[in-house]
Design a protein around this nucleic acid. Structure first.
Lengths: 242, 242
DNA sequence: TAGATTGTTAATCGATTAACAATC
DNA sequence: TAGATTGTTAATCGATTAACAATC
C-alpha cells in the first residue's frame, strides 16, 4: 500500500489552528504518566482505523483491536474530556484530531538531528517525522564526508554553525545521535538556544541547567534485553515442563 | 574514551557457563513486568560502575545515581535472590554477573537482521549487540544492491535463502527492519524455524501461530510523541503561569 | 421507547515506599 | 561490639477493572 493513502495530519489540522491548539485547555492539571505513555498507541490505531475507512468506533471495538480493556480506553480518553457520545461511541476523525492536539501533532515543531552517522541518517530518512507533524530542518556533524551534503531531504551543516542555525530556524527539538562522549558538550551548547526538548539517543544522561527543557532518553538496547530475558525464560520453562 | 575499556561480558561469563546459566534457577515463578523492564537499566549502570573501578555499591549509592528509591532497588534485586550482604552492600561484579544471567546475556543468542535498509544497517553497525552478548550472524534482503555485500561485519543474503540459513546458523532472534507490508509474510516464514524471539521494528503487530515465540514490538515514534506532549505541555504552562 | 455505549464512581489489583528486624 | 546496610514485611499509593447510572 502506498504511504500517500495514509491520513495526512494537514487534512485535519491546519496552520491556523496551531495557536488555538497550544493554548487550548487540552492539558489538564495532571494526567498520569501511564496514560500519557499510551496515547501514541491510540494515535497509531486511530490512523489505521481511518485508513480502513471507518468513521465510528466503540471502546469495545477498540479494545478488541488493541488488546486492552474497554474500561481502560474510556478512562484514558476521559482524562482529557468527553470525546465520545453515549449510545454511539467515538467519531474516529474527531477522536484522532483530539489525540493529535493533546500530543502536540500540528504544533509545527521543528527538529534538528545532531550527529549524521548511521542512526541519525536512518532516522531522518524515515517517514516518522512527517507522520507526526514534526519538521526536520537541519542536521549537524563534523565529518567532511557529510557536511554540505543532503541526507534524505535534509542538509547537513558543520557543528560550528549549530547555535546560529538553531536560532535562525527556530528549532524546538534536538535529536542527539552522536557518540556519547560528546553529549555533555552539546547539551551545554543547547543550554541557551531555542531548544525545548531533547530526544536523546546517546545513552548518556543529560543534565540541563535550565528547567523547561524536556529530555526523553531512548535506549533501544533495553528492549533487546527484555526480549532476551523472555526468550531465556521460555527456554528454561520448556526445559523444565515436567 | 575507547570502547575497549568497557567491561567485556566474556571476562565474567564464559562459554562453559551457558548451560548452567540457562538451567539455573534465575527465573522465579513470576517476576512482575515492572521489575523486568527496569533490569536493563541496572545492567547499564552496573557497567558504568565497573568502568569507574568501583567494586562495591550500596542501594543508597545506586539510588542516588539512578534517581530511584533505595527501597525499590533492594526490592527489585530480591525478586531473584539475595545478591547483597548486610552491612556491606552489593559486590558490583557479582551483581553484574547475576543481572547478566537473568537477562540472558551470555546465553550466546544468535540474531539475524531481516531488511538491510537504513534502520537495519544502522542497528547492525552499532556496538549494542556485542555489549549484550548477542551475535548477529546474518542479514537478509532482496535488493541486488546489498545482497552478497557486507554491512558492518555481517554478510547480506537473499531472502530466498532465509529458511535454509536460519537453520544452518541456528538463529534464535529475528530482527525485523523491513517495510511493514512484508511483515506478515516474513512472520509466516519464521513460523517453523529456529527463531525463539522477534524484535519487531516494522510497526505492524505480528501474530505467530506457535506459542513459544516472544515478540517485542518497538515503536520509536511513540517516544518522540511523548516528548512532543511534554514540550507542548511546558509551553502551555509557561504561557499561563500568571 | 428500547438499545447501545459512554462517563464516572467504587472496588480491586499491583507496584512503590517506608520501616525495621536480621545480620554481616 | 557498634555501625552499616540488606532482606522483608506492612502501609501507602497509583493504576486498572468492574459496574452501572446517565444519556444519546
Amino acid at each position: 500500500m502506498n504511504d500517500k493513502n495514509e491520513p495526512i495530519i494537514e487534512d485535519i489540522l491546519n496552520e491556523e489552528n496551531i495557536e488555538k491548539i497550544i493554548s487550548k485547555n487540552s492539558f489538564r492539571p495532571e494526567v498520569s504518566p501511564a496514560v500519557i505513555k499510551r496515547l501514541p498507541r491510540y494515535f497509531r490505531y486511530l490512523r489505521e482505523i481511518i485508513r480502513m475507512g471507518k468513521t465510528r468506533v466503540s471502546s469495545a471495538e477498540l479494545s478488541r483491536m488493541m488488546n486492552v480493556t474497554a474500561s481502560q480506553i474510556r478512562q484514558d480518553l476521559n482524562c482529557f474530556g468527553g470525546f465520545g457520545q453515549q449510545g454511539y461511541g467515538y467519531n474516529v476523525n474527531y477522536l484522532y484530531t483530539k489525540i493529535c492536539e493533546i500530543l502536540g501533532v500540528g504544533c509545527g515543531f521543528r527538529a534538528a538531528v545532531i550527529g549524521a552517522g548511521n542512526l541519525g541518517s536512518a532516522l531522518v530518512r524515515s517517514p516518522m517525522f512527517e507522520k507526526r507533524g514534526v519538521d526536520v530542518v537541519a542536521m549537524f556533524d563534523v565529518s567532511e564526508n557529510v557536511v554540505g551534503k543532503k541526507i534524505g531531504n535534509v542538509k547537513v551543516y558543520h557543528m560550528n554553525e549549530l547555535g546560529e542555525r538553531l536560532a535562525k530556524y527556530g528549532v524546538d527539538i534536538a535529536i542527539l545521535t552522536l557518540p556519547k562522549e560528546y553529549a555533555p558538550d552539546v547539551a551545554a551548547m543547547l543550554e541557551n538556544s531555542s531548544i525545548k526538548g531533547i530526544w536523546n539517543f546517546t545513552g548518556k544522561e543529560i543534565q540541563m541547567q535550565t528547567e523547561n527543557v524536556v529530555v526523553e532518553n531512548v535506549h533501544i538496547g533495553d528492549s533487546l534485553m527484555t526480549l532476551c530475558y523472555e526468550v531465556a525464560k521460555n527456554m528454561y520453562q520448556s526445559d523444565n515442563k515436567d
